[in-house]
């Protein structure tokens, strides 16, 4: 499945690096704890979180994540957008909660 396949189902608004929508997605990791994501997420997963600060870009890059989905309609700030664009990271925003975004994605991937 590609990131693009999630856009409609999760009502995603794509905030940065649209080319990344062609990335293959193998699963998801839901967490708001940076060290947890660094330690436990796997390459190719999409990260579902409410964290919007600058360090999410670095964490996603280190871990080789397919993209980041911000929940609850959260929006990245300008500095985050710029860094994500330059590091080719796709950040999206969904109005859904973490539970529901994970739930819907789980059904799609099943």
């Amino acid at each position: 499945m590609k990131l693009n396949d999630l856009v409609e189902e999760l009502s995603l608004e794509v905030k940065t690096f649209k080319d990344g929508l062609e990335n293959e997605v193998t699963g998801a990791y839901v967490s708001d704890l940076l060290s947890d994501v660094m330690g436990n997420s796997k390459k190719g997963e999409v990260w579902i979180t409410l964290q919007t600060h600058l360090n999410i870009v670095a964490v996603a890059g280190h871990t080789g994540l397919a993209g980041v989905i911000l929940i609850g309609g959260k929006q990245p700030q300008e500095a985050v957008i710029q860094k994500a664009e330059s590091e080719k990271l796709t950040i999206m925003s969904t109005p859904l909660s973490a539970f529901e975004a994970a739930g819907k994605m789980y059904q799609l991937l099943k």
Partner: peptide, 17 residues
């Protein structure tokens, strides 16, 4: 809502959102 000056270690303890 969402503005915080908390460092990463605080965020890793579940606070500073």
């Amino acid at each position: 809502e969402g503005y915080s000056t908390a460092p990463d270690w605080v965020r890793d303890m579940g606070w500073g959102a």
